[in-house]
Design a protein around this nucleic acid. Sequence first.
DNA 1: TATCATACTGGACACAATGTCCAGAATTGC
DNA 2: GCAATTCTGGACATTGTGTCCAGTATGATA
Lengths: 193, 193
Amino acid sequence: MKIERTDGANTIDRRVARTRALLQDALIALIPERGYAAITVDDICRQANVGRSTFYTHYADKDALRSATMEVHLRSLSRRRVSDGQETGKRLFEFSLPMFEHANAFRSLHHALLATSGDTIHDELRERIRRTVRTELVEKRIGHDGVPVEFAVQFIVGAFLAVLAWWLAEDAGLPPAQVDDLFQRMAAKGIGA
Amino acid sequence: MKIERTDGANTIDRRVARTRALLQDALIALIPERGYAAITVDDICRQANVGRSTFYTHYADKDALRSATMEVHLRSLSRRRVSDGQETGKRLFEFSLPMFEHANAFRSLHHALLATSGDTIHDELRERIRRTVRTELVEKRIGHDGVPVEFAVQFIVGAFLAVLAWWLAEDAGLPPAQVDDLFQRMAAKGIGA
DNA sequence: TATCATACTGGACACAATGTCCAGAATTGC
DNA sequence: GCAATTCTGGACATTGTGTCCAGTATGATA
């Protein structure tokens, strides 16, 4: 294992890349079936057709695999956010629409992620979104009036995750753009009178 | 074990009541230290000074104990909310202030309740609040503009629980009334410009 | 294509936690 | 006081974890 750079084009042995991809896909495939907590390392290895001892040469434990897997997906998410830098500053929050779209594409995965509030995954996802929201809020200098920044951040993140989970649970076909619009409006103007 | 009614005044053997209370208190005491997931049945029994085999004569597993524990406390909460029906109709949401106040009084308990995002009970708490919010929203006919009621409900509930959890985690001494005021303002007017 | 370095494999191992069971000691309700 | 019930500690089988190793397969390189 001489792999250091996570992104380098020519450093990673093809076998390593293959094994890790298999394990990550296996985890994602299993989560909707039983939920993260109930999955064992052995389950993952059988699903991936990978020896159990091989698992431990790549990841310290189940949580490490989860972390790495989420990392990959979230990275593809933020990459997308950067690339379509049109109309920057017009929306209140820029994180939400890409998120709604990604969730729509990986529907069953996100559903499983959010539905089981007991899992560690949920907390990790929340924490990442929290950081994103906080950055946006501080950079754009939104919302003062003596409201502590962290309060506003928590408010927005909580609302967002709740709405996202609801939208995924309901199979009613609201398109991502429309849900995002609803979210943006309530976040900006509140519930009104 | 001839205990059937959960409420009956005279049906429960004193030893049973004592053991269960010890186990429930032990769980609550341990959660802030290591988090729910890392606690073992043996930990709980040692903390409670109860034999491990005794544990299993009362609860099927760790989750069963958690369920029972949360149930007891949630019941005491809704009992309180009914009794203080003053100033109806002045605020946007009436559920929040009593909740903040109760959470303040039973700080460590609520902290444990929300911090660990325990599967069943966290969802149950959420569901109860959801019903309350929905009722208020529909009765007072707040917020239309083509925003589905359930969307608004999820938004508000998610924001509330997030803010509550944050407020409890921070030991900074914001008084309940003030946190509630912040919440009411953001719920009504959003984050503003 | 040859060969060397590296990754994969399956099986064995020690360890930790779970949940069941039991016979004897302790406590309770009546 | 006495019968009924609960508590107890220890033994047990089971499952999952994480480590280690020697043998095999495969990719990288020239």
